[in-house]
């Protein structure tokens, strides 16, 4: 079944024709060519595909593209306000060496931003570790990811994002 979808991705209106079975992540990667959002598993656990749909973190491999019809979607490509101005969470990941191969990174960053906002910019290590339950990383051992998120929380507050 072919269906027309239209949504806003990173502030820009986009549309396309998809099959009912097309996942949101497939729409982003294959239809829009936005390959920053990754697919690392087929059981909805690794979190490499996390994006924000209407401001909330969602696993884009576990949502149909048609379910996002009319929604406001933000992906890793939409975070930096300009090529030289990274989002505070992106900055914190870089400053704290919170990424190695980079594959889990987009989902980690998107989950981390959602986490910081839900906790009103107040986090401790145990909370961060628990909140990362849906994101797997095989390179960093999480140590520096946790550090980065803790550092980003006040930076996001200060930047008003």
């Amino acid at each position: 079944m072919t269906i027309s979808v239209a949504m806003t991705v990173n502030g820009k209106p986009v549309s396309g024709k998809v099959e009912a079975r097309t996942l949101l992540v497939q729409f982003l990667r294959e239809h829009l060519g936005m390959t920053g959002t990754h697919v690392g598993c087929d059981t909805s656990q690794c979190g490499a595909c996390v994006v924000h749909v209407d401001g909330k973190s969602v696993k884009s491999c576990t949502m149909l593209a048609v379910q996002a019809d009319g929604a406001n979607v933000t992906t890793i490509e939409g975070l930096a306000s300009s090529p030289d101005k990274l989002h505070p969470m992106q900055e914190a990941f870089r400053d704290n060496h919170a990424l190695q191969c980079g594959f889990c990174t987009p989902g980690m960053v998107m989950s981390a931003i959602d986490m910081v906002k839900r906790h009103n910019y107040q986090l401790d290590e145990a909370t961060v570790r628990h909140e990362l339950e849906g994101n797997l990383c095989r390179c960093t051992g999480y140590h520096n990811i946790v550090k980065a998120i803790l550092a980003a929380a006040p930076a996001m507050k200060a930047a008003g994002v």
Partner: peptide, 9 residues
């Protein structure tokens, strides 16, 4: 239940 992204859906 699940993880934050799962709880959102």
């Amino acid at each position: 239940i699940g993880d934050p992204a799962v709880r959102n859906r």
